[in-house]
Write a protein that binds this DNA or RNA. Structure first.
Lengths: 334, 334
DNA sequence: ATGAAAGCGCTAACAG
DNA sequence: CTGTTAGCGCTTTCAT
């Protein structure tokens, strides 16, 4: 490959240590030799071997990020922010995808750790104490976002349950008489981490329990689009409450074919406030969990943990959990 | 950090070489000692240090990908495909973003190379012979996609010019009397690589030159939304031809406010077929450059180059350029 | 079937 | 101000 410090040393007739000092401007060194070495280095296009450096320093200035899939708008926004934030600190980001596969996620995390990234941010499909053990065995700062993995694992997210209670509350305020909760992912509980959906479901149930007069329905089949007709009450004013904007958009698209319009013929509320909503009419009413803020907070927490680890400090339990605010986004569909 | 082969050797009372053989199932080794070593390795949670391995093997089984921004739907799809394709071959992907900044891109590329990724796929904002020299100095297989950088740099993309000629041709077939070409990025020529837009512009101009009777207009200002009224002819049937779906969607959204609908009151054609189009009505007519195919081809080409480099073979000029087919996507807007 | 020794390229501790 | 030496953890001849 390229030229090494050893080569430079030979060319310049000095020791490798001197070359090192010149390259890093550290320690005492004769300005002339320094300049000479730097010149030679430049002429020969010297570039440090980062693997070698990482090996000896045990630090790579990389943070790893593992998420579901970059096609998901939400993660896309998150990654952008994480990247920018890390760059500010002179760090680079290694993004990898697990594609909703638990084992892949594990492999990606292991691999990142074995490449000595300095820390990892993960939106996990795994959960539970066994997975917690695995994460801890990696012996590297890890921050989880959105999907909580287990108590004790650093976490950044919003209060999903409360957010859903607020969302459904708005629907109730608008005098809907039947509310249909749409949440296919809940089917996959057990198979994968559905923390956010579980929490949202809890919030919905807890709220509805207080309103006996309102009829509730549940659409938790992945073929939910096939069952829309049965759900819409012919007389009762019906609204859908979805645990993801995507479901809401799909339903709106389907019902449009039957001439039904959200906000007019039925109510609709989503969750996440993904940014393609800007292109869709009517504007979907939804909840925003301000992904940028989550991303920034996650990065900050991660660097905090990296710092602490370097200094041998064990963080307090309350320091590793950050619950952020969310926002109700008023649209035209409820 | 964790336990090393040296530790394992000591625990098992053998040499590091034997440990290595056990771990890799290579060379002659007593089945019993092998089993014993593997057991001990497992018990102690041995994991190889990938930096060290990479350092000595000069190969990391990583490929690097550098793109504008993952928020861009197009790249998101590309990254997904690249990731899947690389994983199939036992490779992992290190995704980094340049955010439209030329220098950042250069830094990302340098850093990836210095970490000895085995190859890089880049959608570049840079171009020209000087940049070509830089890329070659990295001494690592690199494949560029969509935006051509310079002759001689491996490239995967479609025939942008021809595609635009086809697109505009369709509009002409539909008897529009005025055609407005929308392409703000062309403004940034010189500042950054606008290869695809430049080619599309060429295609448009070349085609329109054949039709003197049709009036043409150009909207190349980033404030293009402010100038829509001037562009739409009160009598002549007007159509917009955009070099990106995003521009088309923005225009449609704006004109909807004036009660004008694409496909009814004016024509509209986009470019790229980004997948959020599924959620927008009327369905935008556009050109698809089948990003998945581009991604797969790019990965294949990259691995081909990696292989060739390993064997010291210099690829033929015609082997490093792949021009793929595109598709006209019939919608409702033209 | 096993081991000794050298080396990947860089950094760091210790002399001088 | 400069050099010597050792070592990060792994792989790879070359011996035995």
């Amino acid at each position: 490959m390229g030229i090494t410090t050893k080569d430079l040393a030979q060319i310049c007739g000095v020791s490798r240590t001197t070359v090192h000092r010149a390259l890093h401007g550290t320690g005492r060194i004769n300005p002339d030799t320094k300049e000479m070495i730097l010149r030679v280095a430049k002429e020969n296009g010297y570039r440090p071997d980062l693997l070698a450096r990482g090996l000896v320093k045990g630090q790579t200035f990389y943070i790893g990020v593992v998420v579901l899939d970059v096609k998901n708008r939400y993660f896309a926004q998150m990654l952008s922010t994480i990247g920018a934030e890390a760059n500010k600190r002179g760090y680079f980001v290694n993004i990898t995808l697990h594609g909703d596969d638990k084992e892949t996620e594990e492999n990606q995390l292991t691999r990142l750790a074995d490449y000595h990234v300095d820390g990892i941010i993960v939106s996990s499909v795994n959960e539970g104490d066994q997975y917690k053990e695995f994460l801890e065995s990696l012996d590297i700062p890890i921050v989880s976002v959105d999907n909580k993995i287990a108590e004790g694992i650093p976490f950044v997210g919003i209060d999903q349950k409360q957010a859903m209670m607020d969302a459904a509350g708005k629907v109730i305020d608008r005098n809907y008489e039947k509310i249909v909760f749409v949440c296919p992912p809940i089917n996959n509980a057990g198979e994968r981490n559905v923390y956010v959906h579980r929490e949202r479901l809890k919030g919905f149930q807890e709220l509805m329990a207080r309103y006996g007069s309102i009829e509730t329905g549940y659409l938790t089949d992945w073929n939910y689009l096939e069952h829309l007709d049965e759900m819409i009450d012919p007389v009762k004013k019906t609204a859908f409450v979805c645990t993801a904007d995507e479901f809401a958009l799909n339903i709106m698209k389907r019902l449009k074919k039957s001439g039904l319009r959200a906000g007019t013929h039925y109510g609709m509320i989503g969750f996440d406030n993904i940014d393609i909503l800007d292109y869709v009419t009517p504007r979907l009413t939804t909840i925003s969990n301000s992904v940028e803020e989550i991303a920034v907070t996650a990065v900050n927490l991660l660097f905090d943990l990296i710092e602490k680890k370097k200094e041998g400090i064990v963080p307090e339990p309350e320091e590793i959990v950050k619950i952020l605010p969310y926002q109700f986004i008023e649209g035209e569909t409820v």
